[in-house]
């Protein structure tokens, strides 16, 4: 299979200002910013499933938000199919070359065009569905918003295909049901169907299974995997659970405090982690077999406050092998094998 990059993320920075209280102003306390993303670069190929893993506060959700243009990066850019997402999502794309239709569209139409191609699946299916809408209303709504000029029959066919691809077959059984008449797994399927009905090329799934039961979890993950086959869709899967990511993703990016510390094929990263942070994460992930109990490499404390990012290597305060050098030098990426890199001075 030829690899065509669909998404290029180049040196992305995202900072959020910290709200200053009245007393802060009087005391003339310095302005502070949260460094949510601090130089993130990677590309995603068409039809690939990429896992973004890390603890809370590592910036994985922020990446997803920026990729979809729901937030505007402070620095750096994201190219989706060659277009800058930040401009696209605000309808500010300009015509770049002759015959480029997109840049000539009105703002609203530009934004809709992006939404049609990139969609999101949220974490909690108990909260992301409107309890007063039926399954049909939820799934057909994107089609109505986008005025695709579809006839009633075509709409029905689209909704049916989306629901049945998501395992809600026959679709007629489900479309007059309200969310409270569905089980947790069915709800998450409806959420995925709602994202799929526009036939997007890119899906950002933010912790889509963390609220679900073991068996349903396996179900939804298998579903995401089958969607790639059925619709050649590209998926960015955000999670803190390495085991679920290991099951169905092609590549894995491990994030720590707004940086990618290790990136490579999922199997390679899990079997031979090189960055000490990845090693620790892999070692503490519970293995469902008492014969395979491993020595846990427990990091003390928690992810530091992203307002004061540690100097040098940002992982040094918790790193078991850190030396003086690590406090000073920000480590560059080291290529371990083709497509597998890690940012650590000790490799």
């Amino acid at each position: 299979m030829k690899k065509i990059p669909i998404l290029q993320i180049e040196d992305l920075y995202k900072q959020f200002p910290v709200t200053r209280t009245f007393t802060d102003r009087i005391k003339r306390a310095p302005k502070q910013v949260v460094h949510a993303l601090d130089g993130v670069s990677f590309t995603v190929d068409q039809g690939e499933i990429l896992a973004l893993v890390g603890e809370s506060g590592s910036g994985k959700t922020t990446v997803g938000m920026n990729v979809l243009g729901l937030q505007v990066p402070t620095k750096g850019r994201i190219l989706f199919d060659g277009y800058d997402v930040a401009d696209w999502a605000t309808g500010r794309l300009r015509s770049r070359k002759n015959g480029d239709e997109l840049g000539r569209l009105s703002r609203r139409k530009q934004i809709l065009a992006l939404r049609r191609r990139a969609q999101m699946v949220f974490q909690d299916p108990y909260e992301s569905l409107n309890p007063r809408q039926t399954t049909w209303e939820i799934v057909v709504e994107p089609l109505e918003i986008h005025h695709l000029g579809l006839s009633a029959d075509e709409k029905e066919a689209r909704v049916r295909a989306a629901l049945e691809d998501c395992g809600l077959a026959p679709a007629d059984h489900f479309w007059s049901r309200y969310p409270d008449e569905l089980s947790g797994g069915q709800r998450q399927r409806v959420v995925v169907a709602g994202a799929l009905v526009l036939e997007p090329e890119l899906l950002v799934a933010d912790e889509p299974v963390s609220m679900l039961d073991v068996s349903i979890r396996a179900d939804i993950l298998t579903l995401l995997q089958s969607l790639r086959k059925a619709r050649d869709i590209t998926i960015i899967y955000t999670t803190h659970d390495l085991a679920t990511a290991g099951y169905f993703t092609d590549r894995m990016a491990v994030m720590y405090l707004g940086r990618i510390v290790e990136l490579g094929s999922t199997v390679e990263v899990l079997k031979e982690p090189h960055h000490p942070y990845t090693q620790a994460l892999v070692s503490v992930a519970p293995v469902p077999n008492p014969r395979k109990r491993r020595k846990r490499m427990i990091l003390q404390g928690e992810v530091p406050n992203p307002i004061d990012v540690p100097s040098g290597c940002r992982f040094h305060p918790r790193c078991p092998i850190a030396t003086e050098e690590c406090k000073m030098t920000d480590p560059p990426y080291v290529e371990i094998s083709t497509g597998h890199k890690a940012a650590c001075l000790k490799i």
Partner: peptide
């Protein structure tokens, strides 16, 4: 239940 020691193995709900 996915097993991190066996990435890529089959999962069946």
């Amino acid at each position: 239940f996915p097993d991190i020691a066996e990435p890529g193995s089959e999962l069946a709900s």
